[in-house]
C-alpha cells in the first residue's frame, strides 16, 4: 500500500513536470497550428541556464525567476524572425524549420556547456524530507508538485478570467473571426509563444535539481511530451492536464511492474487513443 502511494506521488510529480512543458506546446499549437518541436530545447536551455545562473549568483530562486524570462525572450525572437516568415510557405515547412532549430539549439547547448552531465543542488530550504505514511519523501519533489499545481491554477485563471485569456481562446477556436474583430494576431502569437517558452524554461529550471542536467534531457522529454499533447488533444489545455497525469502514472507504475517494457506503454496509449479518437481525448478538430 505504501509503495503504491509513493509511486503515485512519483507519477504525479513527473506528470506535472510534463504538463508544464506540454502546456506550452499545446497552447502554441492551438494558436498557430505549428507543432514546435524546438519547444523541448527551450526546456533543456532552461535547465542549463539555471546551472550557470546558480554558479554565478549562488541562488536557486533568482535562477527560477530569471532563466525562464531569458528563454521566453528567445521564444519570442524565434516567432518574430523565423516562424512568422515561413508561415506563408505552409505547415510542412514550419514543421521542418522547428526541427532545424531543435538540432541547432541542442548542439549549441552541448557546444557551450559541454556534453558531460551537470547537476544543480536542491535549494537548502527544500533539501529536507518529509514523512508520508511512514516513508521518507524528499521535500523538493513535493515542492515541484505544489509549484506546478500553482502554475496550472495561474494558467487556468489567465485563460479563463482575463481579457488576454479570452483573446487567446477566441483565436484558438476561430482565428479568422477573432482577427476580423480586431485582434492584433501577430502580437498575440508572439505573446503566446513567449508564455509557452517561459513555461518550458520554468520546467527546465525546476527539473534540473530533480532529474539532473544532461545533453539528452531534451530528447528524452520530447517523446513523453509529444505523447501528452497528442493523447490529450492538440490545443487543449485540459487534455494536457489529464494526459500528463495518465502518462506520469503509467511511467511510474510501468517501471514498478514491467521495467523492461515501461517505455512502450506511453506509445501504446497514444496509438490506442489516436486510433479510437483521432483528435485525442479532448481535441475538437481532427
Amino acid at each position: 500500500m505504501e509503495t503504491f502511494v509513493i509511486q503515485f506521488i512519483h507519477g504525479l510529480v513527473y506528470g506535472l513536470l510534463l504538463f508544464l512543458v506540454a502546456s506550452g506546446l499545446t497552447l502554441v499549437f492551438g494558436m498557430m497550428s505549428v507543432l514546435n518541436i524546438a519547444h523541448v530545447s527551450f526546456y533543456m536551455l532552461g535547465a542549463y541556464l539555471s546551472y550557470t545562473m546558480f554558479k554565478v549568483m549562488g541562488n536557486f530562486w533568482l535562477a527560477l525567476i530569471i532563466c525562464p524570462i531569458i528563454v521566453a525572450f528567445l521564444g519570442i525572437l524565434m516567432e518574430r524572425f523565423i516562424l512568422r516568415r515561413v508561415h506563408a510557405a505552409g505547415h510542412v515547412q514550419e514543421f521542418v524549420i522547428t526541427f532545424g532549430i531543435l538540432f541547432a539549439l541542442n548542439e549549441a547547448i552541448i557546444w557551450i556547456w559541454g556534453s558531460e552531465n551537470l547537476s544543480v543542488p536542491v535549494p537548502s530550504a527544500l533539501s529536507g524530507s518529509l514523512l508520508i505514511m511512514g516513508n521518507i519523501y524528499p521535500a523538493y519533489r513535493l515542492f515541484i508538485l505544489f509549484f506546478s499545481l500553482f502554475i496550472l491554477a495561474l494558467l487556468a485563471f489567465i485563460l479563463m478570467k482575463t481579457r488576454l485569456g479570452i483573446t487567446v481562446r477566441a483565436m484558438v477556436s476561430d482565428r479568422d473571426m477573432a482577427e476580423a474583430l480586431g485582434t492584433n494576431a501577430p502580437f498575440v502569437f508572439m505573446l503566446v509563444m513567449g508564455i509557452g517558452s517561459w513555461l518550458a524554461g520554468l520546467a527546465g529550471v525546476i527539473a534540473a535539481p530533480f532529474l539532473g542536467i544532461s545533453s539528452g534531457m531534451g530528447l528524452d522529454f520530447l517523446t513523453d511530451c509529444f505523447i501528452v499533447t497528442v493523447t490529450g488533444g492538440l490545443g487543449s489545455l485540459w487534455g494536457a492536464v489529464v494526459a500528463s497525469f495518465l502518462i506520469g502514472q503509467l511511467s511510474s507504475f510501468g517501471i514498478l511492474f514491467m521495467p523492461r517494457f515501461a517505455i512502450v506503454f506511453g506509445f501504446l496509449l497514444m496509438a490506442v487513443v489516436l486510433v479510437i479518437k483521432p483528435s485525442g481525448l479532448f481535441g475538437e478538430k481532427a
Binding site: F226, V230, L274
Partner: peptide, 10 residues
C-alpha cells in the same frame, strides 16, 4: 499533423 504524429507513435 495527426497523421504525422500517429506515424511517430508507431
Amino acid at each position: 499533423t495527426y497523421y504525422a504524429l500517429l506515424t511517430l507513435a508507431f
